[in-house]
């Protein structure tokens, strides 16, 4: 198969061939080419943020706090916040590419319009862009792990499983982030994403257990993806895998599926109606 028509015809009888050409990797390939010539400054800033929190809160505030009780054991405060910050790294990375970059490609450079004039379908574009955003989340969390391990903040080998968890978290955030972005029309609306993210991160148990809140607030926080991400990573970090860890996992699976569904639908409505 060498020509465009034969390649497209080969898929003609598959279900969903109208929305998926099986080539999300072409979109990832595009991002890789673009990365070669992009500047590294914004890449670095997204990663540095959680590290700064670790230094300021862990080694600064941590000195005043000492230990935190987690279940029936006491852990050093810096160790306590490390997994939450790893989750934050994954979220930051995923959000970076799936929101502002997507907004630019949707509204300024009309990139998706060009892609969808080819045999590619909206799910190829959605999946390709989301997986790319996920890669950034993954690389941020690996880098974070590489910093925390020599500092003695990673309690066991099992904690390395936080990396696959970070992939799931990043996937969920990227998927949802792109879906929301695809419905936004103005820069003001996009600003809301940033405004929402910081408090979501700060108050979702990254720096202290949410049991300090009154019941209603605690329940509200438990609805947020940031809380599920932080809890999931912390469960793995300290090897406390139980039913609640599973609920966090499923939370992200649902988030991934919903995000992909709405992004695909929105792209189709925008460019193929």
């Amino acid at each position: 198969m060498s020509n465009a028509v034969a390649i497209a015809d080969a898929r003609a009888n598959r279900t969903g061939h109208q929305i998926y050409a099986g080539r999300a990797r072409a979109i990832i390939e595009r991002s890789l080419i673009a990365l070669r010539s992009s500047t590294w400054v914004p890449v670095a800033t997204g990663f540095v943020e959680p590290v700064l929190y670790l230094l300021a809160f862990g080694y600064g505030m941590g000195e005043l706090i000492g230990n935190v009780t987690l279940g029936d054991r006491a852990v050093d405060y810096t160790v306590f916040i490390a997994p939450g910050l790893l989750a934050a790294s994954a979220m930051n990375g995923a959000i970076y590419d799936s929101t502002w970059n997507v907004f630019f490609k949707l509204n300024e450079s009309k990139l998706y319009q060009g892609m969808l004039a080819t045999p590619l379908g909206p799910l190829d574009v959605a999946l390709g862009e989301i997986v790319w955003a996920l890669f950034r989340g993954l690389s941020y969390s690996i880098a974070f792990m590489l910093i925390t391990a020599p500092l003695g903040l990673v309690p066991s080998w099992g904690a390395l499983l936080a990396i696959p968890a970070a992939v799931l978290i990043a996937f969920g955030f990227a998927s949802f982030g792109m879906a929301i972005t695809s419905y936004f029309k103005t820069y003001q609306q996009m600003g809301l994403i940033n405004i929402a993210l910081l408090p979501m991160f700060l108050f979702s148990g990254s720096l202290y257990p949410i049991s300090v809140y009154p019941d209603w607030l605690e329940l509200t926080i438990k609805l947020l993806p940031t809380w599920h991400g932080i809890e999931l990573t912390r469960d793995i970090w300290f090897g406390i895998i139980d039913f609640s860890s599973l609920s966090h996992l499923s939370y992200f699976l649902v988030m991934i599926v919903l995000g992909l569904f709405f992004t695909t639908r929105r792209l189709r409505d925008l460019f193929m109606r």
Binding site: S2, N3, A4, I7, A8, A21, R23, A26, E29, R30, I33, A34, S37, S38, S109, G114, M115, T118, P119, L120
Partner: peptide
């Protein structure tokens, strides 16, 4: 974000070439 030849290259990739 891409150069002239990269634009041609990736567009061909969208077709699966």
């Amino acid at each position: 974000e891409l150069t002239v030849s990269e634009n041609l290259f990736i567009y061909g990739r969208y077709f699966g070439l």
